[in-house]
């Protein structure tokens, strides 16, 4: 496959079957390998769409500065897209973010502003909103509320999955900004009546939920519960166990959040088997495992790995 530039190669990722983890020939599980995107995660889609949308609406001109609360994959994707187009990127990220993340962002030319570790991403969002108010010329793309984030999946992820798997019965993905589930879910619902759209939400250690009070909570503006059929909370033990199963049994080396998603997908598969229904369950592998090696997720016993993850934002 040939493309004019790296950004043009975003998307069109493989959908691969899981012959060992699928329970039967009638109940099959399929993995959408988003680590095959240019910077190694599904966020390349949202980053590219948000930047293109801002350009189309005149919000971004050459030399502009882009601001985003992200310590993870979205920052890396935006850094790549912004560097290609001559924009400066400033990422607001919790100060306890891993050294790999900082090195990757710096390598692609992003500047990093740290937010307090306590409060996690909530705090990063708050700091970014304050910086945006203080610097009106900076452009915050704001992945949690930018419709272009979901639109990327409505226009690409959804159609790709449906083209590869027209018999799809379930779509399962992680719930963060909610962009993947909202966009892909809306598209697939239009194409496949009765399809089940299932969210897997990582359940972190207690420190991550250390808000001062409930009213400081956060629900992404993009989130519309009506798109989902159901939503599961998946803890670190199950996420780690499934992440390891995926690489040991199917050879797919994925990030930890993918383990949580696979756990929910396998739950749907079990249910289909019990109900005697056929099922084609597609789930999202959001990224590869490379960036998480230092967390200890892939070494030692599950209990040791779980202890290492305590207090970390692992998805």
């Amino acid at each position: 496959m040939r493309f004019d530039s790296l950004a043009d190669s975003v998307g069109r990722t493989p959908l691969v079957g899981l012959p060992k983890l699928s329970p039967s020939p009638d109940v099959r599980i399929w993995a959408k390998l988003e680590q095959n995107n240019p910077t190694g995660s599904i966020k390349d889609r949202a980053a590219l769409w948000m930047v293109q949308d801002a350009e189309k609406h005149g919000r971004l001109a050459p030399g502009a500065t882009v601001l985003e609360p992200t310590s993870g994959n979205t920052g890396i994707s935006l850094a790549m897209v912004c560097a290609q187009r001559g924009y400066q990127l400033i990422c607001v990220m919790p100060e306890n973010t891993s050294i790999e993340r900082r090195q990757l962002l710096t390598m692609w030319g992003a500047r990093i502003v740290s937010s307090p570790a306590a409060g996690g991403s909530n705090e990063a969002v708050a700091v970014a909103k304050r910086l945006a108010a203080e610097n009106p010329s900076w452009v915050m793309l704001y992945q949690y509320g930018n419709p272009a984030n979901a639109q990327a999946h409505y226009e690409t992820t959804g159609p790709e999955i449906f083209a590869d798997l027209p018999t799809i019965t379930h779509f399962v993905a992680g719930l963060g900004t909610t962009g993947t589930l909202m966009g892909t879910g809306r598209y697939l619902r239009e194409q496949v009546p009765g399809i089940e759209i299932v969210a897997a939400e990582p359940r972190y250690g207690e420190v991550v939920y250390g808000l001062r009070n409930i009213d400081e909570g956060f629900v992404p503006e993009l989130y519309d519960a009506a798109v989902l059929t159901t939503r599961y909370s998946v803890g670190p033990r199950e996420a780690l166990r499934r992440t390891r199963e995926l690489v040991e049994r199917e050879g797919i080396f994925a990030g930890i959040s993918t383990g949580a998603v696979l756990h929910a997908a396998l739950g749907q598969a079990d249910k289909a088997v019990r109900d005697g229904r056929r099922a084609d369950i597609a789930f999202i592998v959001a990224d590869g495992g490379w960036k998480y090696l230092s967390t200890g997720a892939y070494a030692g016993t599950l209990a040791e790995a779980e202890a290492e993850l305590e207090g970390q934002l692992w998805a």
Partner: peptide, 17 residues
Amino acid sequence: VTVLPAVAGGSAAVAGG
């Protein structure tokens, strides 16, 4: 039954390091 406050997830940090 588990009660949790809604917090921002999504492309969050892996801490440590």
